Amino acid sequence: MFSNITDLTGRILLSVLFLSAGLSKLGAGYEGTAQYMAAMGISPALLPLVIATEILGAIAIIVGFQTRITAFLLAGFSILSAVFFHLDFADQMQSILFMKNIAIAGGFLALMSHGAKRFSIDAALAART
């Protein structure tokens, strides 16, 4: 039982960052994020995809739906974010953000490896078959 609770708690903690980031970009943060992406050489046209990835990916991980696939995709998203936006190692904050993204990718890869446990849609669907 404890393992199931820690699994759910871990999924929530990994996802909260993405959910809050995606939601913040829907409002006042949209224009600033678009400008930041453009300044980093990334097309702001990709911003709706980024927002959808953050929000839908976070929700999928929290509820445990297609957990392994979603965790793999969010690990890749985290690595790409680190590489495209946080490679300025002369700036200590950028170094910290780079390592944060890499650590989050590691958490998602571990989740991909183990999948979601009992408190998940994946487990409910597996029990039905």
Rank of each mutant, 00 (worst) to 15 (best):
residue 1 M to V: 13
residue 1 M to N: 06
residue 3 S to V: 13
residue 3 S to R: 10
residue 4 N to Y: 06
residue 4 N to V: 05
residue 5 I to D: 04
residue 5 I to F: 14
residue 7 D to E: 08
residue 8 L to V: 10
residue 10 G to A: 12
residue 10 G to F: 07
residue 12 I to D: 01
residue 14 L to F: 06
residue 14 L to E: 00
residue 14 L to Y: 04
residue 14 L to R: 06
residue 16 V to C: 14
residue 17 L to I: 14
residue 18 F to N: 07
residue 20 S to P: 02
residue 20 S to Y: 10
residue 21 A to H: 15
residue 22 G to W: 01
residue 24 S to R: 02
residue 24 S to H: 04
residue 25 K to Q: 08
residue 29 G to L: 06
residue 31 E to V: 14
residue 32 G to E: 11
residue 32 G to V: 11
residue 34 A to Y: 01
residue 35 Q to G: 14
residue 35 Q to T: 14
residue 37 M to S: 10
residue 40 M to D: 13
residue 40 M to S: 15
residue 42 I to N: 10
residue 44 P to K: 01
residue 45 A to Y: 04
residue 46 L to Q: 08
residue 47 L to K: 05
residue 47 L to E: 03
residue 48 P to T: 11
residue 50 V to W: 05
residue 50 V to F: 13
residue 51 I to L: 11
residue 55 I to T: 03
residue 55 I to R: 03
residue 59 I to R: 00
residue 59 I to H: 01
residue 60 A to D: 01
residue 62 I to W: 05
residue 63 V to Y: 02
residue 65 F to D: 09
residue 67 T to A: 04
residue 67 T to K: 06
residue 67 T to Q: 08
residue 67 T to V: 09
residue 69 I to K: 14
residue 69 I to S: 14
residue 72 F to Q: 00
residue 74 L to W: 03
residue 74 L to I: 13
residue 74 L to S: 03
residue 75 A to W: 07
residue 75 A to T: 02
residue 77 F to G: 08
residue 77 F to K: 07
residue 78 S to E: 08
residue 79 I to K: 02
residue 79 I to H: 11
residue 79 I to D: 12
residue 82 A to E: 08
residue 82 A to Q: 06
residue 83 V to L: 15
residue 84 F to L: 09
residue 84 F to W: 00
residue 85 F to D: 01
residue 88 D to V: 12
residue 88 D to T: 12
residue 89 F to S: 04
residue 89 F to Y: 13
residue 92 Q to A: 15
residue 92 Q to F: 14
residue 93 M to H: 10
residue 95 S to R: 11
residue 95 S to D: 07
residue 95 S to V: 09
residue 97 L to S: 13
residue 100 K to N: 10
residue 100 K to Y: 09
residue 104 I to L: 15
residue 104 I to C: 02
residue 106 G to P: 07
residue 109 L to I: 10
residue 110 A to R: 10
residue 110 A to V: 13
residue 113 S to C: 11
residue 115 G to N: 13
residue 116 A to V: 12
residue 117 K to F: 08
residue 117 K to A: 11
residue 118 R to E: 14
residue 119 F to Y: 15
residue 121 I to T: 03
residue 124 A to L: 13
residue 125 L to Q: 09
residue 128 R to F: 08
residue 128 R to C: 03
residue 128 R to Y: 07
residue 129 T to W: 11
